[in-house]
Design a binder for these strands. Structure first.
Lengths: 197, 197, 197, 197
DNA sequence: GATGAATGAGTGTTCATTCAT
DNA sequence: GATGAATGAACACTCATTCAT
């Protein structure tokens, strides 16, 4: 996770937080353990972050932002809707493989959070689904995509992509496998899985 | 939630647990509040359940089992793969609308749980994805479905269905809307969203 | 401190709180020590009191109330202003000898408390000074007291009484000594200490 | 607060300490805030003072000493006991109006401090009461004062004076009011408030 | 001398769990 | 079986103090 080196301790804490929150979940992660993992004292965490909650939110937000920037950059390169969908899916898989399982929870999950977290995370989902919806609508206007309910499809696609990074399977896919999976998956969405009548 | 009436208090506690866990999440839910909601004393919870953790797991497991029985019954009624997929999706939406947002978390989520929970919940996902995979393979054998990677598709479908029950949108869909959405969604999967070439 | 026996533990905690707060002051007193002194678990303190602050305030308030009731009862018995002033002074000395040094701080001090405490304690002083002021004014009307600034005198008298219970001197006065001191002191106030011109 | 200018930072810190301790009390005052108020870094406080506790004690002691010097100078000017008592009272009111509410606590209070502070502050009280006692005894010898218990009266007077600076009333008295109050108050003590028989 | 980033000992408070009634 | 008063382990967070610069 590229970060400025202005605050090396802050970065250590965020990396450690990502790791520990990922492993333990928010409530089971202990500040002391995060501090230890970061190689700093407990008090130092509070020099850089107001609270455990704020630390968590910042990790999520910054992580997501980084992720989104990557994905959006990739999307812009692609001209066709198919290419864009593939880019989204590929980035998702690659980046989330890095963050797993925490990032996936940030990406896909909201329900186990307490109310204050939900608001924060819900916005993230909605933003992503919006981006997807727009891509679809662009595709519709460009005659690449049928005249479908773009928002409904965006959700189906977004959910499906999220499930690919299912933490159940702790295997890391090889790049060529990812390429292969993504191509197949996008084609399922575009061309359907029903036997042509 | 039809349950045996052998232990009315046990049932109250489970209903209350479902409600409170749903609203607050596991860690923010308090045994005292669950007991109060159930109209029993705090100690009574421990007459029927060993621990908060066990209560949670049992609620999830029994809830999921009930859910699965319903879905499987519905699936059996359907002859075509399309009908089966629609049945799965419809049941998901209906039942999850009832459980939201907790049930969704139980259905879709794993990452914020501590390790012991993960094992429990991971099995649930895998079981559902297995059922889906079998339906797809059956469809492939019956020439209803193209010769695709059934497991990959099962995940995409399962994830997409889960996202429909996104707690972001706290609206309750009307039955006819559900019917409409499900039909569209399944058709997207079956026939694709790409403009026919 | 006579208390109802409805909540023996609550009473133990209050007694222990009085003792420990007295010895250590508010900030240096530890809830754990109070609990230990009371012979209960730390959590039990929180069964009966919302917080350390609330425990403190209740101890002060209830202590003062008890004290005031005693004093007021004694005052009513006396017919002359001299008798009333003596009663006030005597009660002060006797009761505060019991509470020392904490009670004195509650009686006389306000300044070292944080703002929330001040409001609470300031009212106590003002109430007592008011009572004194009224006694003086009654005395003026009854021609027992010169036509003086009653409120100014009330403060001087109240402050002087408080200083008699100076915690510096940890000696306990004997009842006959108290009687003697009080008589002298009140006479100083009534007849002055200046050599009669 | 005239101080040597050898250590301007030391003086800033002491002034800031007086202000912050006054407003917040010892335990609620933060070294960081004192440093900020003094316009120096947190570490600088520790260049000049060993600890928060020592800073406090020095502020109190030096403040009191300054105060006492002022009062004693004033007392020496006065020839009569009445004049001396008035001088004490006037100085008290004037100076304490400046320091309030902290100074009053230093002057009058001891009980909320932890044991180490008490010893320090108790000496201050005793010193002042001693000075007062001597003035009274001088007055007795000079036939200005009746043959009373000088130490008892000193306490009553000292306590009464302290109560005039009651922080309850955050009003600042005008010089002419102070003069007026002091004259009245001392006369109450000298000539008594009882209606002449 | 001056600083403030780093620290960790210390504490109020919570809440799952127990057990006497 | 049912209860809820009692408990104490556990943890987020504070802040006086240190020390490398």
């Amino acid at each position: 996770m590229s970060r400025t080196n202005n605050h090396p301790k802050r970065d250590s804490i965020m990396d450690a937080g990502l790791k520990i929150f990922s492993e333990k979940g928010f409530h089971m992660a202990k500040i002391e353990e995060i501090a230890h993992e970061a190689g700093v004292g407990k008090g130092t965490v509070y020099e850089y972050f107001e609270s455990k909650e704020q630390l968590f939110k910042i990790i999520v937000t910054e992580g997501i932002d980084e992720f989104n920037v990557k994905v959006d950059k990739q999307i812009k390169k692609e001209k066709t809707t198919r290419g864009k969908l593939m880019a989204i899916m590929k980035q998702n898989i690659q980046v989330l493989q890095h963050f797993r399982p925490f990032a996936r929870s940030a990406m896909m999950d909201v329900t186990l959070f307490d109310v204050p977290f939900r608001t924060c995370l819900m916005k993230i989902h909605q933003k992503r689904i919006c981006v997807l919806t727009e891509i679809i609508e662009e595709g519709i206007r460009g005659k690449e995509i049928k005249n479908i309910n773009s928002s409904l499809f965006a959700k189906l696609f977004y959910g499906g992509v999220g499930m690919l990074n299912n933490p159940h399977e702790e295997i890391n896919l090889q790049p060529e496998e990812i390429e292969n999976i993504v191509e197949k998956a996008v084609d399922y969405y575009l061309y359907g899985v029903g036997a042509s009548k």
